[in-house]
């Protein structure tokens, strides 16, 4: 069950601290797919990259993002989420950081603060492709496996088996 998942540390700090929320926070809805044309979908509460045939393409998860306002704006810090931004992509820390989806809305996190670091990615653009570096794990990039139907992960060494270049396009 989703309940068994660790909850975002954020929830201990309710959003009511701001009497008037930033209602205008624009949520951007994008398609994210890797340069090997793999789309993202959900399997066992994980984002997985694979090829969606025919009517299966309806399973594709659109990525919602908002800027994280407490980081250097030049690095383009963003928070990624799925299911209309209701679930956010979080990075673990440690020797081998892992990714997981947590039940916290991306707009809650966009206000920033130290506890939002693990939800934050610095996005960079080159030749029409994007890379996403974990703010909590410098040097670790969002990646897909060269194999299809494998979970989205993080890597420090992009190679033939770890794809780190993505297309990222407004829906």
């Amino acid at each position: 069950m989703g309940d068994s998942e660790p909850r975002a540390g954020l929830e201990a700090h309710p959003s009511e601290i701001h009497e008037k929320p930033a209602a205008q926070m624009k949520v951007f809805k994008y398609r994210l797919w890797d340069v090997a044309q793999k789309s993202l979908y959900l399997r066992n509460n994980q984002l997985v990259a694979g090829y969606l045939q025919g009517p299966n393409s309806a399973l594709e998860e659109k990525i919602c993002w908002v800027p994280n306002r407490s980081f250097e704006r030049e690095k383009f810090p963003i928070i990624l989420g799925v299911q209309d931004g209701r679930r956010s992509l979080a990075c673990g820390t440690g020797a081998l950081p892992a990714l997981q989806l947590e039940d916290v809305n991306i707009t809650e996190l966009s206000r920033g603060g130290e506890e939002t670091t693990r939800f934050t990615f610095f996005r960079s653009y080159k030749d029409g492709m994007w890379r996403f570096e974990s703010a909590a794990n410098p040097g670790w990039l969002l990646c897909t496996s060269a194999q299809s139907n494998e979970p989205l992960g993080l890597t420090t060494s992009p190679d033939a088996a770890h794809i780190v270049d993505f297309y990222f396009q407004l829906c």
Binding site: A36, Q37, K38, Y51, L52, Q53, S148, Y167
Partner: peptide
């Protein structure tokens, strides 16, 4: 065509199509 895979490339760039699910 009803069971085709949808792939996208951008104009004025180079890119690749992938033959999926052969593994």
């Amino acid at each position: 065509h009803e069971i085709s895979y949808h792939q996208i490339l951008f104009t004025f760039t180079s890119g690749k199509l992938v033959c999926p699910d052969l593994g």
